[in-house]
Amino acid sequence: MELFTPEIGLVFWMFVVFVILFVILAKFGWPYILRSLDERAEFIDKGVEYAQEAKSHLDNAQAEAKALLVEAQKQQMEILHEAAQMKTQIIEEARQAASVEAKKVMDAAAVSIEQARKESELQFRREVSQFALQIAEKMVRKQLSDDKTQVEMVDKLLNEIENQN
């Protein structure tokens, strides 16, 4: 039964050795190890969290970029559309402006032509009347002297001719 009776000496030494071991490890071993284990676990957790966040950010960024691209394309289309519209508008405006201008020019030309015509008409009438007078003078010189009623009659006749024209 020696197996089941604890030996005093061994109990004593076991106690001493165990207490010394425990004190040394509790002071210099375990606190460092446990703290470092916790810290490292936290560090790794944080790293994983960060990576996940970064990944989601990246995914978001891709989606955002896509959305931006779509938006840009839309805007581009709009701009092109607007430009086309503007172009037609400008052309239209130019055309209108040109036609107005042309009309103006035409009008001015017509006016000037009219004026020139009137002037030339006036001149022509004067010349014609002079010619007529000269003719009449020549004719009448032969027949008559200068007669006021005859000139008036000639003028009257000329007017009639003009109105007929």
Binding site: L3, F4, P6, E7, L10, V11, M14, F15, F18
Partner: peptide, 8 residues
């Protein structure tokens, strides 16, 4: 040894 386990 029972002395060792006893102390533990």
């Amino acid at each position: 040894n029972i002395a060792v386990t006893m102390v533990l």
